[in-house]
Design a protein around this nucleic acid. Structure first.
Lengths: 157, 157
DNA sequence: ACTTGACCTAAAGTGAGGTTTAGGTTTTAT
DNA sequence: ATAAAACCTAAACCTCACTTTAGGTCAAGT
């Protein structure tokens, strides 16, 4: 069993945040001895899940709902599994989005590298809609087209 | 040239948000005709950069600073390049973090799949510190250890 | 016993990133 | 000429996730 201060150090989370999580109902079975919180393995695992679900974009109130399912026993296994399966899709989307962001960033790194060499942006801008070097063109297109295939005529127009 | 309504549709961004961005100084050279904003290619590219830098975790005020550099000419190319190089590191870190999140999610999907089959968590919990099936053990360890190599003795203890 | 450090609560405050409201102007179509 | 749709501003409001404050309790060491 750990005190709030120990957990704060273990997870690098401020004490105030742990108390806030508790107040929001994220540790439903948290024990206390004369008012003082005692964190067990259940709460540590809860914290790991909280960090995970927070990363995936879930709000505190939805994480609370999950924690409540965990208190309700085996009847809620399907909901809990469905939640993680849904968040799996969400996180995969987030990763794809960040990879597009990275393509844009790499393009801009190249762009400013050229601009510094040239002393201005004139030469690059002249290439800019779609006459960039192949490697760079790919980055630029990936960043802007969300990785879609341009297959419908009205999308090209 | 486009009106605010057209840009809103093109980028799927609320008009109120575009006005907010403008108020925050994110379109420094934005033209107007009798009070009405006229968005040109410069502003569309600015919006692409805004979305990119926002994704990478930059705050509005820092994006504003970047946009101001863009107005100051070729002397700020190095700062602009350095910004994108820094954000590149940030985004790579975000992707690594999301991949760990995904490992945790995949573990939990497996976990609840087993729990549903078994009707309870007893069998899985018995395996839980480190007697999980190899494939699953890897997910669990990846999710918890941040992908670090456990090389120092006190870290193992 | 007493001091010090770690814990507690409730309530107010913060900051980021918008959104909404209220009242007004401009453009466009009829 | 007029009405509707789209634009404008300033300021108030909102949500989320915390953090800070103020005033108090508990536990460990001396």
């Amino acid at each position: 069993m750990f005190t709030i201060g120990q957990v704060s150090e273990m997870f690098h989370i401020p004490i105030s945040t742990l108390r806030y999580y508790d107040k929001e109902g994220l540790f439903p079975g948290l024990e206390r001895t004369s008012g003082i919180r005692r964190f067990g393995e259940t709460e540590l695992e809860a914290l790991r899940v909280i960090e995970c679900l927070k990363q995936s974009g879930l709000e505190i109130k939805d994480i609370k709902r999950f924690m409540q399912w965990c208190c309700e026993g085996s009847g809620t296994y399907p909901q809990r599994k469905a939640l993680f399966e849904h968040q799996r899709q969400v996180v995969e989307g987030q990763i794809r989005q960040l990879e597009r962001t990275l393509a844009m960033i790499d393009f801009k790194c190249w762009y400013y590298g050229q601009a510094i060499r040239d002393g201005n942006e004139d030469r690059i801008r002249a290439m800019m809609p779609d006459h960039l070097p192949p490697e760079i063109q790919k980055l630029y297109d990936d960043a802007r087209n969300s990785g879609r295939k341009p297959d419908s005529p009205e999308e090209i127009a």
